Amino acid sequence: VKVFRALYTFEPRTPDELYFEEGDIIYITDMSDTNWWKGTSKGRTGLIPSNYVAEQ
């Protein structure tokens, strides 16, 4: 598990995607895809765009 911080707010387009706000901490559990990672924030899990976060 790696810890990342959201650089921007992300509004999901599908139920599989995770909503998060700029500054949120996201725990990444799967980075197997280059563009979409699986992450958890505020008790919810979903896909996030990798270019919206920076490693802490």
Rank of each mutant, 00 (worst) to 15 (best):
V1L: 12
K2S: 08
F4Q: 00
F4R: 02
R5C: 09
R5T: 11
R5S: 07
A6G: 05
A6F: 02
L7A: 03
Y8D: 04
T9F: 05
T9I: 05
F10Y: 15
E11C: 15
P12L: 05
P12H: 03
R13E: 09
R13G: 09
R13F: 07
T14L: 10
T14Y: 12
P15W: 07
D16Q: 12
E17D: 09
L18M: 11
L18H: 01
L18Y: 01
Y19H: 09
Y19D: 07
E21D: 07
E22P: 06
E22T: 11
E22K: 15
G23L: 03
D24L: 03
I25D: 06
I25P: 04
I25E: 08
I25L: 14
I25Y: 11
I25G: 01
I26Q: 00
I26N: 00
I26C: 02
Y27D: 06
I28H: 00
I28K: 00
I28V: 14
T29V: 11
T29D: 07
M31P: 03
M31I: 06
S32P: 08
S32G: 08
S32R: 11
S32K: 08
D33I: 05
D33H: 08
N35M: 14
W36H: 03
W36M: 08
W37L: 04
K38D: 02
K38W: 14
K38T: 14
G39D: 01
G39M: 02
G39Q: 00
G39F: 02
T40A: 09
T40P: 02
T40S: 13
T40D: 06
S41L: 15
S41I: 14
S41Y: 10
K42M: 10
K42L: 07
G43H: 06
R44T: 07
R44A: 09
R44M: 13
G46H: 02
G46I: 02
G46K: 02
L47W: 14
L47V: 07
L47M: 12
L47G: 02
I48F: 15
I48H: 00
I48C: 05
P49N: 08
S50C: 12
S50K: 10
N51T: 12
N51R: 12
Y52F: 13
V53K: 01
A54T: 14
A54Y: 13
E55H: 10
E55F: 13
Q56K: 09
Q56V: 15
Q56N: 11
